[in-house]
Simulated scan of single mutants.
Amino acid sequence: MTTSNSAAQQRMEDLLGTAEAQVLQRWRQMAETPEDELRELYVAFRAALSDPQGDFSDVRGLLAEFSRARARQGLTPSETSRAVFALKEAVYEVVEATGDTETLRAYIWFARLVDDLGLYTFETYSAAREKIIRDQAEALLELSTPVVKLWDGIIGVPLIGTLDSARTQVVMEKLLQMLVDTGSEHAVIDITGVPAVDTQVAQHLLKTVAAARLMGAECSISGISPQIANTIVTLGIEFGDIVTKATLADALAHALRRSGVEVTAPRSARISVRAERS
């Protein structure tokens, strides 16, 4: 730190100590923030200014937490930064009242310092907000990819919406874990709610089926509409020996039969299910 900056730092520390009550009151009014939050920051500011090395790490730590708290509250980054920049205005009123040239020069140094800290607050807020969005997206992803038990030894994965790499990974992990937890040997992946199947989506489905097979489970894919069937043929997508069915009911009936359960549909249209006798 240069001699001039050191002198400015000392002068501003003295000023903040002398006019603490006035500055805090005006800062609270302009920042529209509870005084206890600002007081902690104010004390950290004074401690940093009194440090010969000018260490503002504690101030930055408090500002980071201040930014994260406001991000969780849904406030904008501009509102958060303005709360910090308001300190300059509060201090300037005191500096202007002194009419001292040296104090004004020291204030210019202080204003630049607050500007840097305000930008740091903005960056921290943005990072915190991005994390919140990522966490929410992951939570929604978990909710949008349920794995349910359809029958003893049979689980189902109803997919709705676009199937991308990230979602495929979640589906695969949940499917494999459910296979282990339930000891199931059959899985039905239903794509009735998938708007379109292209080469990429098909590859994701094939990877999921391959992973399930490594666990010793047979997979079938249901929800193949005429439009999707036409797209698959047009694109030349090969599902190989993977069983595909038009409806979830057809796929479940197939899985039941493979499990040794006979499915019959009497004339009354009621469906009865009975285990085959050996």
Rank of each mutant, 00 (worst) to 15 (best):
residue 225 S to K: 08
residue 144 S to K: 01
residue 196 A to I: 13
residue 204 H to L: 04
residue 117 L to Y: 08
residue 168 T to F: 02
residue 175 L to Y: 01
residue 220 S to C: 09
residue 110 F to R: 02
residue 136 Q to Y: 10
residue 21 A to P: 04
residue 19 A to S: 15
residue 39 R to Q: 14
residue 108 I to A: 10
residue 5 N to W: 10
residue 257 R to Q: 11
residue 232 I to F: 01
residue 133 I to V: 15
residue 52 P to N: 05
residue 109 W to F: 13
residue 103 T to M: 13
residue 173 E to F: 02
residue 117 L to F: 12
residue 188 V to A: 00
residue 148 V to L: 15
residue 58 D to W: 01
residue 92 Y to A: 07
residue 189 I to L: 13
residue 231 T to A: 14
residue 42 Y to D: 06
residue 264 T to Q: 13
residue 198 D to T: 05
residue 105 R to M: 09
residue 173 E to D: 14
residue 54 G to A: 04
residue 127 A to E: 07
residue 204 H to W: 05
residue 239 F to V: 07
residue 82 R to L: 08
residue 79 E to W: 06
residue 19 A to P: 01
residue 131 K to S: 11
residue 195 P to D: 07
residue 62 L to R: 14
residue 195 P to E: 01
residue 11 R to V: 11
residue 104 L to A: 11
residue 214 L to Y: 00
residue 216 G to N: 08
residue 215 M to T: 05
residue 192 T to Y: 07
residue 235 L to H: 02
residue 245 K to Q: 11
residue 210 A to G: 00
residue 75 L to N: 05
residue 150 L to Y: 02
residue 232 I to N: 05
residue 155 I to N: 03
residue 205 L to T: 06
residue 88 K to W: 12
residue 152 D to Q: 15
residue 261 V to E: 03
residue 26 R to H: 09
residue 272 S to N: 13
residue 210 A to C: 00
residue 138 E to I: 15
residue 250 D to V: 00
residue 91 V to A: 09
residue 128 A to V: 12
residue 45 F to E: 02
residue 4 S to Y: 14
residue 197 V to Q: 05
residue 263 V to I: 14
residue 154 I to K: 06
residue 228 I to C: 08
residue 190 D to F: 10
residue 96 E to D: 08
residue 23 V to F: 04
residue 234 T to Y: 07
residue 137 A to Y: 11
residue 109 W to E: 05
residue 255 A to K: 00
residue 93 E to W: 09
residue 270 R to K: 14
residue 181 D to R: 15
residue 74 G to N: 12
residue 224 I to D: 01
residue 126 S to Y: 08
residue 52 P to H: 05
residue 54 G to T: 03
residue 16 L to Q: 04
residue 184 S to C: 10
residue 121 T to C: 06
residue 75 L to K: 15
